[in-house]
Amino acid sequence: MHNYFYLHGFASGPKSAKARFLGDRFRERQLDLQVLDLNDGDFPHLTLTRQLQQVARVLPQQSATIIGSSFGGLTAAWLGDRHPQIERLILLAPAFQFMDCWLPTLETSVLERWKSSGTLSVYHFGEGKVLPLHYEFAIDCQQYSQIQLQCPIETLILHGIADEVIPIQVSRDYARTRPWVKLIELESDHGLGDAMERIWQEIQRFCQL
């Protein structure tokens, strides 16, 4: 039995538009897409390490494909590097170099307050409200260097050329040095909302559904 998982993005949730769209498409094929809630009931204490541990606890011993969006895509890449039962990765606008892309968008004063106070106010799209995020998130991310991601796992990346959050060049650089990665560039932004039908077509082809 092959297992399929979906990992949502940063400050998102299991009821996101992409999660619902893909869940519906998999059900139409009589397949179960397991959509995890990476907030784990405690978004303020979110870290990449915690996400990796959370997913690892539910991974089966049998083969699996992981679909990850944005920060969930980054999480998927690290999981694929560590767990041999993961046979394929599908990364939607993966948040490689996440902190390098995100921190410069914060004003210096905001970043300093995050360090000194310990929390940063973040709008959580899944909850529809502002929530605090502890500075441990930033500290934890610093220990993960994507240059370490060298496991030759079959990977499909779909990334919008107008991505305003994670520049497509990040995925281009990642794919260029990893021959097992296929990058498809889409006429879309970070949300990829207008490209979901194309994404589903590529997922079916990649997974041979």
Results as ranks from 00 to 15, higher is better:
residue 112 E to P: 04
residue 61 Q to S: 12
residue 100 D to R: 13
residue 80 G to F: 01
residue 126 G to W: 05
residue 117 S to A: 14
residue 115 K to R: 13
residue 99 M to S: 10
residue 69 S to V: 06
residue 109 S to M: 07
residue 85 Q to R: 02
residue 47 T to S: 14
residue 96 F to M: 06
residue 72 G to M: 14
residue 86 I to G: 00
residue 90 I to N: 08
residue 76 A to H: 14
residue 92 L to N: 01
residue 68 G to Y: 03
residue 78 W to H: 10
residue 77 A to K: 03
residue 115 K to V: 09
residue 119 T to M: 11
residue 93 A to C: 11
residue 118 G to V: 07
residue 114 W to V: 10
residue 111 L to H: 12
residue 73 G to I: 04
residue 105 T to C: 02
residue 117 S to Y: 09
residue 123 Y to H: 14
residue 87 E to M: 04
residue 46 L to Y: 11
residue 101 C to T: 03
residue 128 G to L: 11
residue 97 Q to N: 09
residue 125 F to R: 14
residue 58 V to P: 00
residue 90 I to W: 10
residue 59 L to G: 04
residue 71 F to P: 00
residue 94 P to L: 13
residue 43 F to A: 08
residue 70 S to M: 13
residue 52 L to T: 11
residue 126 G to H: 04
residue 59 L to C: 08
residue 82 R to T: 08
residue 47 T to I: 09
residue 113 R to E: 10
residue 87 E to D: 10
residue 66 I to E: 02
residue 90 I to S: 09
residue 58 V to N: 01
residue 105 T to A: 06
residue 98 F to D: 00
residue 105 T to R: 14
residue 51 Q to I: 10
residue 129 K to D: 15
residue 57 R to T: 15
residue 41 G to K: 03
residue 72 G to C: 13
residue 50 R to A: 15
residue 109 S to Q: 14
residue 114 W to E: 04
residue 47 T to N: 07
residue 120 L to S: 05
residue 102 W to Y: 13
residue 122 V to E: 04
residue 66 I to L: 15
residue 53 Q to P: 02
residue 56 A to V: 03
residue 95 A to I: 07
residue 103 L to E: 11
residue 118 G to F: 07
residue 105 T to P: 04
residue 108 T to W: 01
residue 128 G to S: 12
residue 110 V to A: 12
residue 92 L to I: 07
residue 42 D to F: 01
residue 100 D to Q: 15
residue 105 T to F: 02
residue 57 R to K: 15
residue 48 L to K: 08
residue 56 A to R: 11
residue 87 E to S: 13
residue 45 H to V: 04
residue 51 Q to Y: 15
residue 79 L to T: 08
residue 105 T to Y: 03
residue 98 F to V: 04
residue 81 D to W: 04
residue 88 R to P: 00
residue 54 Q to E: 14
residue 84 P to T: 06
residue 90 I to F: 12
residue 41 G to R: 03
